[in-house]
Simulated assay, not measured.
Amino acid sequence: MAVPSTTEKIYNYVDLDEIWKVHVKIEKESAKAWPNKWGFLMESYNETLQKSGKVEESMAKLELPKHLKTRPPTPPEKYIKVGPSPPVPKTTQALIGWRSAVPELQLERFGKVNCGKKSFLKELGWAFDACS
């Protein structure tokens, strides 16, 4: 009798997460140690740039085209209007839902939420227990 072979790989997500954490830790430690080991390369690179006169060219600031520039942020007071709150109820029982009793403060500003009357599974012609 033949033994069925599975082509699916079995993953242990906890082990994969631990491996990822070790990689991140090594990267952080390497980034901290790099200036001590290889920082002299940056000094010689900067000296070479200054000697060649390319420092000014690399430091030149490019001007963005007009269509890529961003506008300064609009102050929130311009488009958000906050009115006064109704008086706070005197009892804790009246405190529940006291803001929703005022029509201007209700969350449903655009009417009631209508739930769908159709079923996605019924539209596809699937059995209702097809999805669990």
Rank of each mutant, 00 (worst) to 15 (best):
A33Q: 11
G83K: 07
K90P: 09
T91S: 15
P73G: 00
P65R: 03
M59L: 15
Q50L: 07
R71H: 10
P75R: 09
F40P: 00
G83L: 08
H67S: 05
W98R: 01
T74P: 01
I80L: 15
W38P: 01
S100C: 01
P86Y: 03
E77A: 13
V88N: 08
Y79C: 00
P89T: 03
A33T: 10
P89F: 03
K32G: 00
K32F: 05
E43S: 12
L49H: 09
E29M: 12
F40A: 13
N46L: 14
P76D: 10
Y79L: 02
K28N: 13
K37H: 08
T91H: 06
V55P: 03
H67P: 01
K54L: 09
P86L: 03
E27K: 07
G53F: 03
A94L: 12
V82K: 15
S44M: 01
Y45I: 14
I26H: 12
K54N: 04
T74Q: 11
K51H: 02
L62G: 06
R71I: 10
V55H: 10
W98I: 00
W38H: 15
M42K: 14
G97W: 06
R71C: 08
H67C: 01
K32C: 03
H23S: 11
P84E: 15
N36V: 07
P76T: 11
S30F: 12
N46G: 06
N46T: 13
P72N: 02
Y45M: 11
A94W: 01
T92N: 12
W34R: 14
E77F: 14
E27M: 10
P86H: 04
S58N: 12
A94M: 11
I26E: 13
K90M: 09
G83M: 09
S58P: 02
E57R: 11
R99Y: 07
K37R: 13
W34C: 06
Q93T: 10
P75L: 05
P76N: 11
V88G: 04
T91Y: 06
V24K: 05
R99Q: 14
G83Q: 09
G53T: 01
V88F: 15
W98H: 15
Q50P: 00
R71K: 13
W98F: 15
K51Q: 00
I96T: 11
H67G: 00
I96C: 07
K37S: 13
